[in-house]
C-alpha cells in the first residue's frame, strides 16, 4: 500500500488536508478575486456582514473590504508560517546533524548555542529581533525561525547519535567516503522523518507568532495580516465584534488544519513502520 493510501485512511489527516486546501485556495485566489489592494477603501465604514452582497463580510472602521483582507491575510499567514518552518527545520537539521556527527568540542559548542536560544522565550526573541532590525516579511520569518529551530536541532542530534553507530555508516567510512558526505548523504536523510514530524507544531506556532507580532503593530505595515486585522477590530470590539472574530476564525482553522494534517502524516508513518 502506498504512503498516500495509508494517509487517506486516517480521518484526521483527510480533514486537515481539506481545511488547508481551502486556505491555500483562498490564498492563491486572493489576487484574482480581489485584484485591488486590500488596504484600499471600498465603501462606507463598518458595514456588518451579509448586509451588502458586494461586500459579503462587510467593511472595517476605514471602509476596507473584510473578505479581501481575510483572503490576502491567508497569503501572509501561510507564507510566513511555512517559510519560518522551512528555515527552522533546515537550520535545526543541519546544526543537529553536525553536532551529533562531529561529537567532541563542536558538539559541545553547538549544543551550548542551542541552550542559549532555548533559555529565551521564543516570542520575546522574535519581538526583540523585529524591533531592532525593523519589520518586513523576511525579517519576521527569520525572527520566528530563531525561536523554533532548537527543537529540530535537538531531535536531529539525538537521531544522528543513534544512526552514527549503524553498520552502513561504518561501511561508508570503510569505502573512504568523506565525513561531510557521510553526514549529509548517509546520516541526515535517515534522521529526518522524526524531525519532519515537528513541522506541524512549528508551522502552527509560526502562524500564531506572526499574528501576535502584527497584533502588537510589529508586522509589515504594507501587508494585510490576520493579526493586524484583529488589532484593528479591537477598538470597536463591542460595536463590531465580527471585525476581530472573522480573522480569529481564520487563525483557528489554519492551526487546526496544520495539526490535523501533521497527525495524519505521523499516523501513516507509524503504520508503515509497523508493517516493516
Amino acid at each position: 500500500m502506498s504512503f498516500l493510501a495509508r494517509f487517506l485512511r486516517s480521518p484526521e489527516g483527510v480533514a486537515g488536508l481539506l481545511l488547508l486546501a481551502c486556505l491555500l485556495a483562498m490564498a492563491l485566489l486572493a489576487p484574482v478575486l480581489f485584484p485591488r489592494d486590500p488596504l484600499s477603501i471600498v465603501g462606507r465604514p463598518l458595514i456588518p456582514p451579509f448586509a451588502d452582497w458586494s461586500l459579503p463580510l462587510g467593511t472595517d472602521r476605514l471602509g476596507r473590504d473584510v473578505l479581501a483582507g481575510l483572503m490576502h491575510g491567508a497569503r501572509t499567514s501561510l507564507l510566513v508560517g511555512i517559510s519560518a518552518a522551512v528555515v527552522a527545520l533546515a537550520a535545526g537539521a543541519v546544526i543537529g546533524t553536525l553536532a551529533g556527527f562531529a561529537a567532541g568540542w563542536l558538539d559541545e559548542a553547538l549544543m551550548r548555542v542551542v541552550d542559549a536560544f532555548q533559555i529565551v522565550p521564543p516570542f520575546l526573541l522574535a519581538l526583540a529581533f523585529v524591533s531592532v532590525v525593523g519589520a518586513s516579511l523576511p525579517v519576521i520569518v527569520l525572527a520566528i525561525a530563531l525561536g523554533a529551530w532548537t527543537g529540530a536541532a535537538r531531535l536531529a542530534r539525538a537521531e544522528v547519535l543513534s544512526i552514527r553507530e549503524r553498520d552502513y555508516v561504518a561501511a561508508a567510512r570503510v569505502i573512504g567516503m568523506h565525513p561531510l558526505e557521510i553526514a549529509f548523504k548517509e546520516v541526515l536523510p535517515n534522521a529526518l522523518p522524526p524531525v519532519l514530524a515537528l513541522t506541524s507544531v512549528i508551522v502552527a506556532g509560526a502562524v500564531l507568532t506572526e499574528a501576535a507580532l502584527s497584533f502588537l503593530g510589529l508586522g509589515d505595515p504594507n501587508t494585510v495580516t490576520w493579526g493586524s486585522m484583529i488589532a484593528e477590530g479591537r477598538n470597536v470590539l463591542r460595536t463590531a465584534p465580527f471585525l476581530s472574530i472573522v480573522p480569529g476564525l481564520g487563525l483557528v482553522l489554519t492551526v487546526l488544519g496544520v495539526y490535523l494534517l501533521g497527525e495524519g502524516l505521523v499516523e501513516a508513518l507509524a503504520r508503515k513502520r509497523r508493517r516493516q
Binding site: 549503524r166 553498520d167 561504518a170 561508508a172 567510512r173 570503510v174 573512504g176 535517515n190
Partner: peptide
C-alpha cells in the same frame, strides 16, 4: 581515505550494512 581502498569489509547483517535508501547501483557506484 585514499588508502582505505586497500582494506575492505563485509558485515554480518547485509541489510544493516547498506543505507536503507540505497539501490544496488548506487551502493556499488559510491
Amino acid at each position: 581515505r585514499e588508502r582505505r581502498a586497500r582494506v575492505q569489509m563485509v558485515f554480518q547483517d547485509p541489510l544493516a550494512a547498506f543505507n536503507p535508501r540505497a539501490t544496488i547501483a548506487s551502493a556499488l557506484a559510491d
